[in-house]
């Protein structure tokens, strides 16, 4: 059983950049373009890994540590995540708190690395990232609290095992609210429209992209890969909530879950295509809204 739970990390490490490709393809289709190859993110990462690096004279070791720690933290966070009915590699009470705080560690290093350049653009991005993530955290942890209350269990693996069709029949609306909150968190944490625009070319309006403006070569490859894995992580959370797989056949479970992942990526692509990004001042409202949705789910569960 335990060996099967090792499959997910490998799948994630292998397939995460493909999610970016799917999103971009969906956006291209919506815009009437042919779009870049599905495997473009892999090509980018491979190319960047072969390059040298240019460092600003202002920067210190913090700037170089940022990408490494960022990627490490996301990989470590993946270890507690259950997938396709298999439990996480490590599973214990409140393991999701460890997951959330490992992502927090990654963010701390990204922000510090951005401030290390001394550029006001990157400071601007860092400041926004700090603000928005502080608001996204309650939404995520309260949403998980709702799921924990629903299943009366405390580890992610148990929570998602308990979340089956019967649970959907009983408290479907509450779970749907949690899913909505998680979807908002997914978009915000992965710097997607309507919170951030990964394609913009104007430093003044960017958040995540502007923070990594000065990174290049292998460092940027790490960042790109880390971002893909983070997207995978949040998408997997969402898929776990929305698509509880219960079949006894393991390959079928994996097939269903993977389909779910790509459906989630298509969903993100659709949102990016049909929505404009919000004004920065409106973003906190969206995130507080997500926290309210989580709270509402809790109220429904406690009723």
């Amino acid at each position: 059983m335990k060996l099967l739970s090792l499959i997910h990390p490998f799948l994630a490490l292998l397939l995460a950049p493909l999610l970016l490709g799917v999103i971009n393809r969906v956006k291209a289709v919506f815009a009437g373009r042919r779009g870049q190859p599905l495997l473009q993110a892999y090509y980018d990462i491979w190319k960047l890994l072969g390059k040298g690096a240019v460092y600003s004279r202002t920067t210190t070791w913090v700037f170089r540590a940022g990408p490494v720690i960022g990627l490490t933290a996301v990989i470590s966070a993946l270890m507690v995540l259950p997938f396709a009915g298999q439990s996480g590699v490590i599973s214990f009470s409140c393991d999701f708190v460890v997951m959330a705080y490992l992502l927090g560690l990654a963010r701390f290093f990204t922000i510090a690395a951005a401030l290390d350049t001394g550029s006001s653009f990157e400071g601007m991005g860092a400041s926004r990232e700090a603000q928005f993530s502080a608001l996204a955290e309650p939404a995520l942890l309260l949403g998980l609290a709702a799921l924990a209350v629903q299943s009366s269990s405390l580890s992610l693996s148990d929570i998602f095992t308990q979340l089956n069709l019967q649970a959907w029949m009983k408290v479907g609306p509450a779970i749907l609210l949690v899913a909505a909150a998680m979807a908002v968190v997914l978009l915000a944490e992965n710097s997607r429209i309507p919170v951030d625009d990964p394609n913009t070319h104007l430093e003044l309006t960017m958040i995540h992209e502007v923070m990594v403006l000065d990174h290049g070569g292998p460092d940027f490859a790490y960042i790109l890969y880390g971002a893909a894995l983070k997207l995978w992580l949040f998408a997997a959370l969402l898929v776990n909530v929305l698509m509880p797989v219960q079949a006894s056949n393991v390959p079928v479970n994996f097939a269903v879950a993977l389909t779910g992942m790509f459906v989630a990526a298509i969903g993100v692509g659709v949102v990016e295509s049909i929505m404009a990004r919000l004004r920065l001042l409106k973003v906190p409202q969206l995130l507080v809204g997500a926290a309210v949705l989580s709270t509402l789910a809790l109220v429904l569960l406690l009723r």
Binding site: T58, G104, L115, D116, G118, A130, S133, P138, L141, L142
Partner: peptide, 28 residues
């Protein structure tokens, strides 16, 4: 649940405060 909400908010804001304290004083 209030504790979960409070701790989550405190955690996020503390990260903002200390990226500020360390980043502005020691970096750049």
């Amino acid at each position: 649940l209030a504790v979960v909400l409070g701790m989550a908010l405190i955690g996020g804001l503390a990260a903002a405060a200390f990226t500020k304290a360390f980043g502005i004083v020691f970096l750049g």
